[in-house]
């Protein structure tokens, strides 16, 4: 039984808080008290039992059939992310052709995904994209695989983005600014064994 009365002058609340601070900075009056240690170990055990329970439950949930995922995806719409209409020219005076800003962000991401080891995050089109010929600056956030040479990857990415924008839009792109926000670790699926070399 964990008693709150014999905790070397500490309250149970203090110990709980101490645990949540990852026991730092170390408090000798807590670490040196057997009663406190018993209480802390109990809380730690509680946490690990709870983690086991969670893992089991979450595992069971991930094994369920997939219908709930598709039903969620059916209820979300691209409309909310369409953004501005970017005009596309046509010789007919009654034609009003456009591509949405959301679609353009989509092709920027796709173009980025064609360059290995760099991932495109958020994209912004600065300038009046609704005005044909208006100067536009594209701002892109990217994440790079740890250990890669950033400048070289950024150049490759910039080329890919320019090409995609030329293909799909008539935007007068003055510059593409790429900000490397972060580095990421390569992901290795646990079951995958590397057999080359």
């Amino acid at each position: 039984m964990t008693s709150s009365d014999a905790l070397a002058g500490h309250t149970f609340e203090e110990l709980s808080d101490y645990l949540d601070r990852d026991r730092t900075p170390a408090d000798p009056s807590i670490e040196g008290s057997p009663e406190c240690q018993t209480a802390l170990n109990g809380m730690q055990r509680l946490r690990s039992v709870h983690r086991d329970l969670l893992l089991k439950d979450a595992q069971r949930e991930s094994e369920r059939e997939d219908s709930w995922v598709s039903s969620i995806l059916q209820h979300i719409s691209l409309e909310a992310r369409a953004g501005r209409d970017i005009p596309i020219s046509h010789s007919s005076p009654t034609a009003r052709l456009s591509v949405t800003e959301g679609a353009v962000r989509g092709i920027l991401r796709a173009a980025g995904d064609s360059v290995p080891n760099i991932i495109v995050g958020r994209c912004h089109l600065d300038g009046d994209v609704t005005e044909p010929g208006a100067p536009i600056t594209v701002r892109v956030d990217a994440t790079v695989l740890e250990g890669e040479i950033i400048a070289s990857l950024a150049d490759q990415l910039r080329e890919a983005l320019y090409a995609a924008l030329r293909q799909h839009t008539e935007l007068a792109v003055e510059a593409i600014d790429i900000t490397i926000r972060d580095l990421y670790q390569p992901f290795v699926p646990p079951a995958k064994a590397s057999s080359d070399e």
Binding site: R81, A82, G121, R122, L145, G147, Y184, F187
Partner: peptide
């Protein structure tokens, strides 16, 4: 000059930050 073999970066392996940024931009 890649310092190692390119990783194909399937979406499933992307960090949370990137996924939520992309979703915020309309990436279903």
């Amino acid at each position: 000059t890649p310092t190692r073999e390119p990783v194909s970066s399937p979406l499933e392996s992307f960090p949370d930050q990137v996924l939520s940024d992309r979703a915020a931009d309309g990436d279903m």
